[in-house]
Amino acid sequence: MSIRMLPAAHIEKISPATDEQLILAYQQTGNQEHLAVLFLRYSDLVYGTALKYVRDADQAKDAVMNIYQELVQKLRSHEVAHFKSWLYVVTKNHCLMWLRKNKKNITIAFQPEFMQSGEDGHLDDLLAKEQQFKKLDNCVKSLQDEQQHTIRLFYLEGKCYKEITALTGFEWDKVRSLIQNGRRNLKKCMEKNA
Rank of each mutant, 00 (worst) to 15 (best):
G118L: 04
L87G: 07
A63T: 10
Q73C: 08
E79F: 02
M97S: 13
H78T: 14
F114H: 05
R55P: 06
S77L: 11
M115D: 12
W98R: 00
I106Q: 09
D120P: 02
I108Y: 08
E119T: 14
K61L: 03
D58R: 06
R100C: 10
K92N: 09
G118K: 02
L99A: 04
C95V: 01
A57R: 06
K52Y: 09
Y68M: 03
Y53S: 01
L99V: 08
V80A: 06
K101Y: 05
I106W: 05
L123T: 15
I106F: 06
W98N: 00
M115K: 08
K74L: 11
A63N: 07
A81K: 10
Q111S: 09
Q73M: 12
K52F: 11
Q69L: 13
A60G: 00
V90L: 02
K61H: 01
M97R: 09
L123N: 05
S77Y: 13
Q73A: 13
Y88P: 10
W98I: 02
A109S: 14
R55S: 13
V54Q: 01
A109D: 12
Y88W: 10
L51F: 04
V72E: 12
I108S: 03
F83R: 03
M115C: 15
F110L: 14
D56E: 01
Y53C: 00
K92T: 11
V90Y: 00
V64D: 00
F83Q: 05
N93G: 07
L75S: 11
I67L: 07
L51Q: 04
K92V: 06
N102S: 04
V89M: 11
L75G: 04
F83W: 04
Y53R: 01
L51A: 02
K52E: 13
A81Q: 10
L51T: 02
M97Q: 09
V80R: 01
H94V: 13
I106E: 08
I108F: 04
H122E: 15
L96D: 10
M65D: 07
D120Q: 14
A57E: 13
D120V: 10
Q116Y: 05
M115E: 11
N66P: 10
K61S: 07
L123W: 03
H78A: 11
P112F: 05
I67M: 03
L87I: 11
L71A: 04
L75W: 03
L87F: 08
A57P: 13
T91S: 02
K84D: 10
G118Q: 10
H82E: 10
A63P: 12
D62K: 01
I67Q: 05
R76Q: 14
D120W: 02
D58K: 05
V64Q: 00
K104F: 07
V80T: 06
D120H: 06
K104A: 13
D56W: 00
D58F: 09
D120C: 09
G48W: 01
M97G: 13
G121Q: 15
Q111F: 12
S117K: 09
E119A: 11
M115I: 15
A81C: 11
S117L: 15
K92P: 08
Q111T: 15
I108G: 02
N105G: 11
F114T: 07
K74E: 15
M97W: 07
H94N: 12
G121E: 12
T49Y: 07
